[in-house]
Design a protein around this nucleic acid. Structure first.
Length: 294
DNA sequence: GACTCGTGGAC
DNA sequence: TGTCCAAGAGT
């Protein structure tokens, strides 16, 4: 599979494609700080990039760096997070800012090992920051990269269940040695997965890897592995949590129990959702009222 | 590993 | 209309 013409990632074609087709996202501009990149990576976890951009700008205008964020009230942080989803990320981000200030002298760490100690920073985000903010040639594996590798290298339609060790090893083997090229490689792989090699309807006619793609060569066979569990939402605790928090987020940050009762009829589920919000620190109870944490 | 945790756009 | 899915992390 290492001989010329073998299937896999045609890196020169990939990089050429990216230079012309990559989106001009604001955090890709020169001079963007490591903190600003960390912020956009956390906001982008499971959230479409297009929805992140305006929140990222507003957020940085209010809290330019970790010191400012660490000093902010949780209620304001939750409100500024808006409707990006998974609001626990907002609280973790504030905790992350505090750790950066207290343990790393206000500077975003450069080593993956140190980045992994930050709240809300996991295997993807740690390597994304090390690579995109600090220029390190470390493998960056997100859902896009996993899908592109599955198709172009392995010749299958989907990536299958994630495995950190296996996925990192697979991408490590593809990563260019030189730092600058490695950084562009990772951005380009993610961008290709986001724009061309998409989950639902890959546009192979527009793909710079089509000529070298193992999946295309095999005739784009359908996925015969395990089907991902359908991601339900309606009727789940997640939906109820969202409805409850929405009441507090949109108002003055406080509401009576009766106001919250109105958003969901099932007492058991509503109480369970509210308890979990309290446990997460997204909501606090003061007497008869519920509020965002001051 | 399996499960939980929001929100909204695309088809 | 309902299903799928999106720059994952924590337990």
């Amino acid at each position: 599979m290492t001989s010329p013409g073998a299937h896999g990632i045609d890196t020169p074609s990939l990089l050429s494609w990216f230079s012309g087709a990559g989106r001009p996202l604001p955090w890709r501009e020169d001079g963007v700080s490591a903190w600003e990149i960390l912020l956009c990576e956390v906001m982008s976890q499971q959230t479409p990039v297009a929805r992140v951009e305006p929140v990222w700008r507003d957020w940085l205008a209010r809290w330019p760096g970790p010191a400012e964020l660490a000093a902010a009230a949780p209620a304001d942080v939750i409100r500024m997070w808006g409707k990006l989803g998974y609001p626990r990320r907002a609280l973790r981000l504030r905790e992350c800012a505090a750790v950066v200030v207290e343990k790393f002298h206000g500077e975003v760490p450069t080593e993956v090992e140190d980045l992994l100690t930050l709240p809300g920073v996991g295997d993807y985000t740690a390597r994304a920051v090390a690579c995109f903010a600090h220029g390190q040639a470390v493998p960056v594996v997100d859902t896009n990269v996993r899908r592109v590798v599955a198709r172009a290298v392995n010749g299958v339609a989907e990536a299958g269940p994630p495995s950190i060790r296996r996925d990192l090893a697979a991408v490590e083997a593809l990563l260019p040695d030189e730092c600058q090229e490695a950084v562009t490689f990772s951005v380009a792989m993610m961008e290709l997965g986001a724009l061309v090699c998409t989950a639902r309807s890959p546009d192979c006619d527009a793909c710079p890897l089509a000529a070298s793609c193992a999946w295309v060569a095999a005739g784009r066979p359908a996925w015969d592995g395990p089907r991902r569990k359908a991601q339900t939402y309606a009727g789940t605790d997640r939906q109820v949590r969202g409805l409850l928090l929405d009441v507090l987020r949109d108002g003055d940050g406080t509401a009576t129990a009766a106001r919250l009762v109105a958003v969901w009829p099932d007492t058991v589920q509503r109480d369970r959702a509210l308890d979990s919000l309290l446990a997460d620190g997204l909501v606090v109870r003061t007497g008869e009222r519920y509020s965002l944490p001051a």
